[in-house]
Structure formats: C-alpha cells, structure tokens
C-alpha cells in the first residue's frame, strides 16, 4: 500500500469541522485503561510539552529550555470513542548515546511498542531535528511528524513544504502551532488514523552508510536477525545497535524480549522494562 500523503491533509482539514472533532475529551491523568498508546518524542525545546498539554488538558511545565521533561510524564485523552494514553518522553537529540534520557525514550519506543509515535520537530530548526526523526523511523513504522512552531517559522519568513517532507520521510507530517492550538485537531485525526491502521506508513530508512564494511556487516547480521525473529520490524536498526555494542539490545536478545517484539507482544519482560523507566509520582 502506498502512503496517501496528499490526501492526508485534505482529510485532516476536512475533519476540522466534522463531528468527530468535537469529541476530543481531555482526560488529564485520570486514566486507567486505554485503547491505544501514543508516545511523544522530540528534541528539547521544540514545544513538545505544549503539544502534550494541548492534547491532555494538563499543565505540565513548559520551559524554553532543554531537558525540562526529565522523566516520562503521562496523560490521556479520548477521541472518536477511543481512549488514548499519551506518554511524554524526555526531550533528546538522539537515541544513540548513553544518557538516561535517551535510554528511557529509546526503550519506550522499542519495547513499549506504542501504537503511534508523534515526533515533535521545530520547523525553524528542521535539519537538526530530523536526526532524531530518522532515528525514530528506524525503530518504528507507526510514526507521525508534528511540524511544530510553524508560527515562528512564518515570523522568520521560512517556508517549509510539509507535503514534500511527508513524501521524503514516508510518514504523515502535520504542521502545528501548539501554543495557539493550530493544527491540533488535524494532528489528532492523523494520529488516530495511524494508530488504527487506516493510514499505512512507509518510513524512510537508511539503506546504506558511507562505509561499505559497516553496510556488509549490517546486512549479514540483519539477515540472521530476521531468520531468528521473523517479523521483527526493525532488523537493520537492531543490527546497527549490536554492532555499536548496545548492552540493552544484547540483553533483549538473550532474555527473548526481542522475540516478543517480532510477535507484537508486550510480555512480562517488556512490562518489567517499562516499570524501570516509570516515573515516581
């Protein structure tokens, strides 16, 4: 199936007036069971917390300042008769280095298998932000890019072609100015469509690096991984992590939780891993 990039936004904006839209019910933290889990990722200082607040009605502190959300914050909302749990991941520049923040974010996207991951990016600093977007797309198929701060981009007379961006990334891109609530209805619609599988995405993935030896190693290893764990959604990325000596991933292979991923299960090992990252109230 191909990605309906262009129709996406048509449907999104058409729905700004459709009855479904009136059904956004912000649930704050009062949420016990849910139908879908949404992860919110992004660089520090992209207005991620503002998006979180706009969706949940919570008032998490939003500072113009990196590293604000240090641990995971959670909230919920109801949209189109479905209940969504929203997990605000720590703001990070990358998912590769060994900081606690990056580990929490990475583990949640990999092992928590959210039904959709929304990546909030700063429209005025796109290049820097895409590094994280591309890394998230290596891990999960179910992603939406929330192109935030388009009001700032306009102020700086910057034109970002979000359709082109969506085509290049292979996932929906929704322009937003979360502080004005602009684009939030469209974002909700697109997130729900990705979560429910109405939209199928085809994320851009690196086919090669500039280093042939590394590429060959990745091919060998990812082949073995796919044989051992049929249906693993991100074999190339797992291979790259193994070649970088990632202990967490090695452990996931040893204790079998990587196998759970290939079956789409969230089993004991996975939920244990998630509790480690859980934030004390």
């Amino acid at each position: 199936m191909t990605l309906r990039t262009d129709t996406l936004h048509a449907s999104g904006s058409a729905c700004a007036t459709c009855p479904m839209n009136q059904h956004l019910e912000r649930l704050g933290v009062k949420m016990t069971n849910w139908d879908y889990v949404v992860a919110l990722a992004g660089n520090p200082n992209t207005g991620k917390s503002t998006v979180f607040n706009a969706l949940t009605g919570l008032r998490q502190h939003t500072g113009n300042w990196p590293g604000k959300t240090v641990a995971r914050a959670e909230g919920g909302f109801q949209y189109g008769n479905k209940r969504y749990k929203l997990v605000d991941l720590p703001g990070t520049y990358s998912l590769l280095a060994a900081s606690v923040d990056e580990e929490i974010a990475r583990d949640f996207i990999l092992f928590g298998q959210p039904d959709v991951t929304a990546i909030v990016v700063d429209a005025t600093r796109l290049e820097r932000n895409l590094n994280l977007v591309l890394q998230v797309l290596e891990i999960t198929n179910k992603a939406v890019v929330c192109l935030n701060l388009v009001d700032e981009a306009r102020r700086h007379k910057l034109i970002v072609d979000h359709r082109r961006l969506a085509r290049d990334l292979g996932v929906p891109v929704v322009p937003t100015a979360a502080r004005q609530n602009e684009g939030i209805p469209e974002l909700l619609q697109v997130m729900s469509e990705v979560a429910t599988g109405v939209i199928e995405t085809r994320p851009r993935r690196l086919r090669s690096t500039a280093n042939p030896a590394l590429d060959a190693a990745v091919n060998t290893l990812s082949g073995q991984l796919e044989a051992a764990f049929p249906g693993l959604p991100n074999a190339r990325w797992v291979a790259l992590r193994l070649l970088d000596g990632d202990q967490q991933i090695e452990r996931a292979i040893r204790d079998g939780s990587l196998g759970d991923l290939s079956r789409g299960d969230k089993t004991q090992a996975v939920s244990e891993r998630l509790t480690i990252a859980e934030v004390p109230a």
């Binding site: 520049y93 990358s94 590769l96 280095a97 060994a98 290049e127 820097r128 590094n131």
Partner: peptide, 8 residues
C-alpha cells in the same frame, strides 16, 4: 565525541 556528533 558522541554528544558532539549527536548535536550535529
């Protein structure tokens, strides 16, 4: 080194 590279 990693941090510097992650920052671009």
């Amino acid at each position: 080194r990693r941090r510097m590279m992650d920052l671009g």
